[in-house]
């Protein structure tokens, strides 16, 4: 079992664009304060933001958790549905089911999951249609 020296969970509300991004900003601030390398902070900030926005736009609500170990950062996104029926399709750049209101705001480019994967050293996604989605993004510190 990996020993994490710090852990923080943020609850993310569906459809609340007014506070969207605050969890990611808080995670970024936390990592910066710990003196973590700027390039790594940036990668985690991008991944956290894309995960947070997916919870806001696509899920019924969920949580974002950051865990910090001496040698790695782990971001976990979990939600209570609706789940993703076809993950390979969802991972394709440009594929998006974002509603019109989100698209008007510039969301829904269909690049969120691929942005997360690109920023991660390890990327894991598990989803059960009707139940929920769990995402894990690991970034090595060493």
């Amino acid at each position: 079992m990996k020993r994490y020296i710090m852990e923080h969970t943020y609850s993310i509300e569906a459809g609340n664009y007014a506070v969207a991004g605050e969890a990611s900003s808080s995670i970024k601030g936390l990592l910066k304060k710990l003196g973590i390398d700027g390039g790594i902070v940036r990668r985690m900030a991008i991944a956290a933001y894309e995960a947070e926005m997916n919870l806001v736009i696509h899920s019924v609500g969920g949580s974002l958790t950051i865990k910090i170990a001496p040698d790695e950062l782990l971001l976990i996104s979990e939600d209570g549905g609706p789940g993703i029926a076809d993950i390979d399709l969802a991972m394709e750049e440009g594929y998006s089911t974002a509603p019109e209101e989100a698209r008007e705001m510039g969301f829904g480019a269909g690049m969120g999951l691929s942005n997360m994967k690109r920023c991660a050293d390890e990327f894991n996604i598990h989803s059960d249609a009707g139940i929920g989605t769990k995402l894990q993004i690991k970034i090595y510190l060493k």
């Binding site: 664009y17 894309e50 705001m105 969301f107 690109r118």
Partner: peptide
Amino acid sequence: LLSHVMANARSNCVWVTVQTHLN
């Protein structure tokens, strides 16, 4: 498109966009 910005914009850059909302 915000995910394009997340993927491509560098730090200390100037960003030109017609989006004006909080996000």
